[in-house]
């Protein structure tokens, strides 16, 4: 699989400050009966956007979001906890997000996102608090340098696992890398 390589992203943020946003919020289980990855954006945060009958909720925090200019989701801590469904990053990407920033992002969600061109960025508590308090500000995320600039010369660095970063920069899934290891895998199977 491949996706758009992630170099530099300049965009405004969309903030949802709730903690522990689980993957059932990101995409409710009833949308998981699909056998494809496509078009899940319409189900992203569905229950936050629509009522039980499928009518848009007037009070939804998502009403003001513009996915063309707000490609960075800033969320409360422990974002993406819960199930391992890769439908969560598929849905967020399809909705238009290209990066998620939080003070803490769940492991499996992080790993899944990195394989789908959605960059998880974990920042320190102070930066997190600043971002939560200033919705809609423009950020520049530079994956090559692993830096986020918050404007006015304020730049913070973040960590991404080196290999996943390479894959994101190149826009490739690591399957090719694993396939190159097949000779070693064969040897392992034979000697154990």
């Amino acid at each position: 699989m491949s996706f758009e390589p992630f170099g530099k992203l300049i965009s405004r943020t969309f903030v949802i400050s709730q903690k522990n946003i689980d993957t059932d919020q990101i995409i409710p289980a009833r949308f998981l009966t699909t056998t494809s990855k496509e078009g899940l954006g319409k189900s992203a945060f569905y229950d936050w956007r629509y009522d039980e009958k499928g009518n848009p909720l007037n009070s939804s925090v998502f009403n003001g979001v513009n996915p063309d200019t707000q490609k960075i989701l800033v969320a409360g801590s422990n974002f993406g906890c819960g199930s391992s469904r890769e439908h969560a990053p598929w849905a967020l990407s399809d909705f238009g997000f290209r990066a998620v920033i939080s003070s803490d992002i769940a492991d499996i969600f992080k790993s899944n996102s990195l394989k789908n061109g959605l960059l998880p960025v974990v920042v320190d508590e102070d930066t997190h608090a600043f971002l939560l308090a200033n919705p809609g500000i423009e950020l520049t995320i530079d994956l090559e340098k692993c830096e986020v600039s918050l404007g006015e010369n304020k730049v913070i660095s973040f960590e991404v696992e080196a290999f996943a970063r390479r894959c994101m920069l190149d826009g490739v899934d690591p399957l090719g890398h694993l396939i190159n290891q097949l000779p070693d895998i064969k040897v392992y199977e034979e000697v154990r």
Partner: peptide, 9 residues
């Protein structure tokens, strides 16, 4: 647990 991409791996 793993994600679907990893299931493929």
């Amino acid at each position: 647990g793993i994600g679907t991409t990893e299931v493929g791996h």
